[in-house]
Computed example of a mutant assay.
Amino acid sequence: MKREHTGDYEITAVAGEQVKAFIPSPLPPVPGIDISPELQQSHDQALIAVGELNSLTSLLPDYSLLLYSYVRKEAVLSSRIEGTQSSLSDLLVSEMDGIPGVPLEDVTEVSNYVAAMQYGLDKIREGLPLSLRLIREMHEVLLRKGRGEGKNPGEFRTSQNWIGGTRPGNAVFVPPPPHRVMECMGKLELFIHDPALLLPVLIKAALVHVQFETIHPFLDGNGRLGRLLITLMLCDSGILKAPLLYLSLFFKVHRQEYYRLLSDVRSTGDWEAWLSYFLEAVTLTSRQAVTTARQIARQISDDRKIIGQTGRSSATTLLIFECFTRKLIADSKYIVAETGLSPATVNSGLTRLQKLHIVSEITGKKRDKIYSYARCMEVLNQELEYDTKE
């Protein structure tokens, strides 16, 4: 549906140039969203797919590993959209105070993403509503270290920004002037918590994402935080039991369509086309997450059986292996602390796991060795490798 009024423009001066900054109309759209039979069907399919994803929390005995790894995989994917080169392995090594294989700033940005997501989820569980306060606090965590620490972490911008182009005059899009940011964000907060609105949560999250990206309230980190808000809203509403749904890969693979649809919302108010795209993203991403989770569960089960057939040493080897079902990368010190086994026993067990091709040593060093649950990492890296081919 095309809408005549999607927002207003205000002339503002940026770097010596006069530009038209866009101020979006507050949500919900007017006229309201046209839930056609096709859009309703897309919504129902997305809801079913999310339900299947939720079932993993009760069906999988190794759910904690899935959650641990999925949050970190999303951090890598979302940060890659912003230009970092960090891998999942780099992040996991850095969390052990190891040395990653890319610039430390890249890993710091990815690590900040994990921390921001966890911070938001913890605060919501403590009873803090999804509010401007929480959004600013999450932004502060997101940018507290690394390249963004000089971009006013936790504060809405007080200067004009722009998207695309080499300067304001040839920008693809210019968000609201700084003096209108608080007004726009305040109205967005009211929309999020408006009890009179009867919109389905998935539809609401899709609308909020676009509005946040359009306002672009911070100097840096808007893309990452805008993607985080989707998962946070779904978890806050209860539609998602755990933070297992992330759309960064879909958005990146289909980024040209993503940007086109956001532009169409701003120019013509075609929210329905965006919603169709968003719901497809939720459906396909949820299904892929379920497939990946089942692959991981099968791999862990198969590896346990292999270890169980190794004879007298199987009991201690299995105990060591279980450390890798909670954490994908570990060193002998961590395993000794977790199992209570002696360093010699742990090292012998790690050698056996290497010979079985279940774990691999990833540093190549004689000392301070770090081991990776190689087979599980291969499953998780499938999407990350697909991303690099695009």
Rank of each mutant, 00 (worst) to 15 (best):
L380G: 09
Y371R: 08
S348M: 13
T339L: 07
R367H: 10
Q354I: 00
Y371P: 05
Y373Q: 09
G364A: 06
L356H: 03
S348T: 12
D368W: 10
R375S: 12
A344Y: 03
L350T: 03
S342C: 01
A344M: 08
N381V: 10
S348H: 10
E378Y: 12
V346T: 00
T345Q: 04
N347Y: 00
A374Y: 13
H357S: 10
K355I: 06
E338K: 15
A337C: 11
T351M: 11
R352D: 00
G364E: 07
I362C: 07
I362N: 02
G364Y: 08
N381I: 11
S342I: 04
K366P: 08
E338T: 15
T363H: 01
H357W: 07
V359L: 05
V346W: 01
K355N: 13
I370A: 04
I362Q: 05
S360T: 13
K365D: 12
A337R: 14
L341Q: 09
E338D: 14
S360H: 11
T351H: 09
L353K: 03
S348L: 13
L350H: 00
R352S: 03
L341I: 06
R367P: 02
Q354T: 05
L380Y: 15
A374C: 10
A337N: 14
N347G: 00
P343K: 01
A337P: 11
K355F: 07
P343N: 03
G340E: 03
E378S: 15
K369T: 09
L353V: 04
N347P: 06
G340N: 04
C376V: 15
P343T: 01
S342G: 06
S372F: 10
Y373D: 07
D368Y: 14
T363K: 08
L341G: 02
T345D: 06
S360C: 13
V359C: 08
L350C: 03
L341V: 01
M377R: 12
G364F: 08
K355H: 12
S372T: 12
I358F: 00
A344D: 07
I370L: 13
S342F: 06
Q354R: 08
K355C: 04
E338H: 12
L356I: 02
G340T: 06
D368P: 07
E338L: 11
L380F: 15
T363V: 05
L341P: 00
L380P: 10
L341N: 05
L353S: 03
G349A: 05
G364S: 06
Y373F: 15
I370Y: 03
A344G: 08
M377H: 12
L356A: 03
H357F: 11
L350K: 01
L341K: 07
A337H: 14
L350G: 05
L356W: 04
I362P: 02
Y373S: 08
G364H: 07
R352P: 03
K366W: 12
Y373A: 14
I358K: 01
N381T: 11
T363F: 02
T363M: 04
V346K: 03
I358M: 04
K355M: 09
E378V: 11
E338N: 15
K355V: 05
T345C: 01
T345V: 02
G349L: 04
T363P: 00
A344Q: 14
T363Q: 02
R352F: 04
K365E: 14
L341S: 05
N381L: 15
I362E: 04
S348F: 09
L350V: 06
S372I: 12
M377W: 08
